[in-house]
Amino acid sequence: MSVKEAEVLEHGTSLAHPAHEEILGEQFETLEQQNNAYLIGMWAFIVQEVLFLGAIFAAYGIYRLKYLHEFTLAHKELDWVVGGINTLVLLASSYTMARAVRAAMQNKHGRQILYLGFTLFFAGIFMFNKYIEYSKKYEHHLIPGWGYDAHAIVEHGEKKKILEPLPDGNYKIKLETEKTVTPEEFKQRTQLFLGFYFILTGLHGLHVLVGMIAIGVLMVRAYIDYKKRKPVADYMPVEMVGLYWHFVDIVWIFIYPLLYLIGR
């Protein structure tokens, strides 16, 4: 006799609502236990993500310390306005995601679909802006690789009077302190910055894309529940995608100031 059966004999039923029986996996005794298992699993995954992205941030910081002048010049190529709009959009999407989770907890399937739709919409705007940004980098030959060319950064720096080409062909970069570099060094080090930019924003964008697929799946699920007029549905998948989504938002909260803003 299983624990569940014994419990049913003793207390009638362990489940507050008959519909809960469908949701509860047989390896769990109560929904609370099941939900906690889901939650801890998701958090363990997020902690792993923190460390994996944290290592790239740490590497970026170390090279920024070493090549502060070159990195500062290169980062002026990033569009802080588009980055800011994207921050706004992601924060708004986190809010709608939180509202979707709330609706799921209350078994309001229609409202859940609505808020998931808003989240998907904001994520779409984010990805569109990323596309605009990436294609601008392509036009300016700022994609690291064979076609990389630092001319756009040099011209920009000259215009802002923080870079001065010296008669011997080297560049003098004038920030708080001055630094003279050869064109070859300048090319390599600005390319390194853009490498970090593409790795960080690329991985982040990939996470957004995965999140969008997950949200799409949740919307289909919620639609089925809505059609069936299910009184109680398992809200945990929504909660977990929500946790993932907020985490992706947090990553952007760090990317935006560290890549786009500091040293403006």
């Binding site: 624990v3 362990s14 809010y95």
Partner: peptide, 27 residues
């Protein structure tokens, strides 16, 4: 064991947080 589980029977309490908490967080 039955005692232990009986303790949790009412237990799938999830917090439905008031909307204003989310709104203020966003602001």
């Amino acid at each position: 064991m039955a005692e232990h589980t009986a303790h949790h029977t009412e237990g799938h309490e999830h917090h439905v947080v008031p909307i204003r908490v989310y709104t203020w967080t966003l602001i």
